[in-house]
Computed example of a mutant assay.
Amino acid sequence: MTTTATGTVDLPGGRVLTWAETDWDDPRAAALRAAMDGEIAPRYAALRQGSPPPAPPSGEDVAVVVLALVDGAPAATGTLRRLPDRWEVKRLLVDADHRRLGLAGRVLARLEDAARDRGADELFLQTGNRQPEAIALYEREGWERIEVFAPYDPADGISVCFRKALRAEP
């Protein structure tokens, strides 16, 4: 596990937000992802009817995991994944006890910066149609809806995909 601290921010109520960039195997980020699975899986159980969800990222295709710590506790995470033909945001989650602090938008912005730093001109993501809070976040942050892209199945009716230009388009 590699962790790089990337600064602190004061939050309301005297809380302190500390940023870290780490890797897929970081146990703090893994715990947040497990909480996400526990929260999201029931929303899709009836739609999936036993078929598995898309494969998660692996340590090999993950460029960076952003981790937000509030007073030292894991509060939010997001992942930047490199696919053969694109950069993709994956596994963005804010812990239930740390919501309404603006962390989701901040994590997303850090992932966008990480993609720019790696030479990406655009960034993609996929969420599900039963995650209205995620869809609202992406729309609010300037992401545009696009057609469902591989490896997601447009026929399953679940995926909602987005794209964001990271550099000014002519």
Rank of each mutant, 00 (worst) to 15 (best):
Q126D: 14
G157M: 00
R110I: 15
E139F: 01
D153R: 11
I158H: 01
D156M: 02
I158C: 01
G157S: 02
S159D: 08
S159K: 03
D113H: 15
F149R: 08
E112M: 09
E141S: 03
N129L: 10
E112W: 10
A155E: 11
D153P: 09
D156K: 00
A114L: 13
A155M: 03
D153Q: 09
L123N: 05
A120E: 08
Y138N: 03
E133A: 11
R116H: 11
R116I: 13
R163P: 05
R130G: 07
E147G: 14
K164A: 06
N129G: 10
R140Q: 14
A136I: 01
I135M: 08
I146L: 10
I135K: 01
D113R: 15
F149Y: 15
G128S: 08
E112N: 13
L111Y: 13
Q131A: 14
F149W: 09
C161H: 05
R116M: 13
A150D: 14
D121V: 09
E141L: 06
Y152K: 02
R130H: 15
L111G: 10
Y152S: 11
E133P: 07
E112C: 10
I158W: 01
A134P: 10
Q131L: 15
A115P: 08
Q126T: 15
A120H: 10
F124T: 10
S159I: 02
G128R: 00
A120M: 13
L111W: 09
R116N: 14
E144W: 05
E133N: 09
P151Q: 11
D113C: 14
G142I: 04
A155R: 09
L137Y: 00
I158D: 01
E139A: 04
A134I: 06
D153A: 09
G128Y: 01
Y138A: 03
V160P: 00
P151R: 04
P132H: 06
L123M: 12
A114F: 08
R130T: 13
T127E: 13
L137W: 00
R116D: 10
L137T: 00
E141N: 04
N129Q: 12
L137N: 01
P132V: 05
E139L: 06
E139Q: 04
L125Y: 04
L111Q: 11
G128W: 02
R118D: 10
D113E: 15
E141A: 07
V160K: 04
A155L: 04
E144Q: 12
R110M: 13
P154N: 00
A136R: 06
N129M: 12
F149K: 03
P154H: 00
A155Q: 05
V160Q: 03
A114I: 11
F149Q: 07
R145K: 12
K164Q: 09
F149T: 06
E147K: 08
G142D: 02
Q131V: 11
D156A: 02
P154C: 01
Y138T: 03
E122R: 12
R118A: 14
E147D: 15
R110V: 12
P151A: 07
A150L: 14
V160A: 06
T127A: 13
